[in-house]
Nucleic acid binder design. Structure first.
Lengths: 230, 230
DNA sequence: GCAAAAGTGTTCCTTTTACACCCATGC
DNA sequence: GCATGGGTGTAAAAGGAACACTTTTGC
């Protein structure tokens, strides 16, 4: 009985948020077989001496040029046959970024790389649609027991940006449901927001105050795990 | 640049519950190097044509003789150096069983196999202490947003068994905290318990009614995810 | 009769929900 | 002046927490 020939890869589901465009996911167009020319999650084989996390960051850099500072392990997919050529077990990660901060470009290892709105993704290679679905589900779940926002919003943001973020992720179909006042009350009670004296207008309507996260409290709360039902 | 030489293994953290002994974990004594003679989590290399889940079940059978019907993926550990000889990425699973149902024995692939009380585990091989810690944390967390019990209790059980289960897992140090009446009220409200006409005495004290889970509702609730704060 | 476990309701408090009007600005 | 988004409070309802005595059995 010879040693099993199994390869290990990593894949990344990077979510980008933008107040105008909502929630997107970063995809690449494959440059090599299998599935050459099709869209897929960025990712690739892990090298023998690098950690899984290092591998994800490296692959993201090589394929899309972006650097993500928040990545979390999602799930490991290993069904035989998920890669048509070899047995490949892939460790999937998901991450969150402010979409506006990143110029995405097809770096050396991909034919193309771009953001797709979460409700308008193309057919994906391998079992990547399954991975994407798992990540989306996890993101939604996470929202209700951990503060999310720091990674997705600009340093200073209007309260309505935060509100729309939650609204978007919870309620992708767009029927308004979350009560603005109750949401604000609840969120402010967490004590992780700092209201700035500056006000900013969006072009029309009354200008709103800017807020920023109190990083210490934010991460403390995140560590401890909070419960936040919308 | 040659292909990376990485192996893939699975490890299982199997928790057993017994109303008398509380929460235990199943460990094996390693029969082969490295760490020969030391205690470790059951597990081993994945074969090229089997799924990860199949591999866990197979290894459990080969090393401890038990069959677990509830196993869930926990996390994948892949730091280089976690196995002293080769690069091994391990996918950890955790599961729950009724301890009383299983005769554990050292099957062919282990020198010994037994249950250890969760607060009295030996030093473990590899990074298995870290894996065990992660599993314990996850189990506690899970308890508060999913019904747990079906997998850990006999088919028919007294309400106090369920109560002690939660008490044990939440509150390992044993200072009583959960209010019996409130716990019962809340749990019954979930609508997943069926009260049987039979009563049973524990030898002393007033006999209590037996309950069983309404499987359909139980698993439905589990799918949807419930929120249950104790 | 006493030790051990099971059964049972009410009150208070906290949290959550529902809900509508005025304000500041750009055009 | 009107359209657009920002800001704000209260009342009713639901859910959670605290709490103690009685019942049934074995010995």
């Amino acid at each position: 009985m010879g040693l099993p020939n199994i390869r290990v890869s990593v894949d990344a589901v990077v979510f980008g948020y933008d107040s105008k465009e909502g929630l997107s996911v970063l995809l690449i167009k494959r440059k090599v077989a299998p599935f050459k020319g099709e869209w897929a999650l960025p990712g690739g084989l892990v090298k023998e001496d690098e950690s899984l996390e290092t591998a994800v960051h490296r692959e993201l850099e090589e394929e899309t040029g972006i650097t993500v500072n928040y990545l979390e392990q999602l799930y490991t997919f290993g069904t035989p046959g998920r890669d048509p050529r070899n047995r490949v077990v892939t460790v999937a990660y998901y991450g969150l970024v402010r979409q506006s901060e990143f110029d995405v470009y097809a770096a050396t290892d991909a034919a193309d790389a771009k953001w797709f709105h979460i409700d308008d993704t193309p057919k994906l290679a391998f079992d990547h649609e399954q991975i994407l679905a798992a990540a989306t589900k996890r993101l939604r779940g996470k929202l209700s027991y951990e503060p999310i926002g720091f990674e997705l919003l600009d340093e200073k943001f209007r309260f309505s940006d935060l509100y729309h973020l939650y609204q978007t992720i919870y309620n992708p179909t767009g029927e308004k449901k979350i009560d603005r006042r109750n949401f604000k009350k609840k969120f402010l009670q967490l004590g992780i927001l700092e209201e700035l004296p500056e006000k900013v207008s969006e072009g029309r309507g009354r200008p709103g105050a800017l807020f920023k996260f109190d990083k210490e409290k934010y991460f403390a709360l995140k560590e401890r795990g909070m419960l936040f039902q919308v």
